[in-house]
Design a protein around this nucleic acid. Structure first.
Lengths: 122, 122
DNA sequence: GTATTTCAATTACAGACGTAATTGGAAGCG
DNA sequence: CGCTTCCAATTACGTCTGTAATTGAAATAC
């Protein structure tokens, strides 16, 4: 079961720090969203149902923590984009951004370093 | 207005060849999907409403062609993924796939060539 | 010119999603 | 013990999406 955009915002909080109570999550999201508390509770419950997080009782309230790993989520999202738009490969995406001149100096240096490294241990 | 997954499948057909009649699109999708004709008509109409395509009368039927450019669609989808998951930059995505050993030989050669080229004319 | 065919336009409908209000139950206060 | 308070659980509701059936209008065939 895929997790939705709004749900992934909640996941982000839990990936950063967990376990957290519902109130902790609400507090963490107060800065970046204007979601009401019940909204966030709903999202937590949907994530529970999807087995993306787990809840453990802590006295009267629950503490939530991720089951889904961020890296796995990132990977499935990225892979699905690559598959849909770039023939499943990374290079065409980089080429696209290069054509649009959307590669920063930082990107360039980093890519160079990466490739050298890969060449090195290949 | 963003276009949905199913809608983008229809766009793919029109990006490949246009203008096409509704029946042409149905025929083109018969191989890859099992959508019924009314389904595809609905998607065409939603795309029209979203101004992603235009229709021009051709006798009794319409011919459809893209208004939204594929490169623009690809870019907005990719950018939104990068922004959400990779701090808006390309290199961290490449790094992610590299860590997962999901860079093919082909990707490697292509990336190397790309970077050389960029270095060259920088 | 009526019957049939061919399209397009309208309507339908269940599930997901974003957003939230309301209800219910347990825990603490007086 | 009954009242309030604090959570969590349930219910709500409009929109979008995927999928399609039904209706309507124009053209064609007899």
């Amino acid at each position: 079961m895929p997790i939705s955009d709004a749900e992934s915002v909640v996941m982000d909080v839990l990936w950063r720090r967990a376990p957290l109570s519902a109130d902790d999550v609400v507090a963490a999201l107060a800065a970046s969203t204007d979601w009401q508390e019940p909204t966030i509770k709903t999202l937590l419950n949907r994530l529970l149902k999807k087995r993306a997080i787990a809840a453990e009782r802590d006295g009267k309230r629950y503490l939530y923590r991720p089951l889904l790993k961020r890296a796995d989520y990132v990977h499935s999202e990225s892979k699905s984009l690559l598959d849909r738009l770039f023939d499943g490969r990374v290079a065409p995406l980089v080429a696209h951004f290069s054509e649009r001149r959307k590669l920063s100096k930082k990107d360039l240096t980093e890519l160079k370093r990466l490739i050298e490294e890969l060449d090195h241990d290949a």
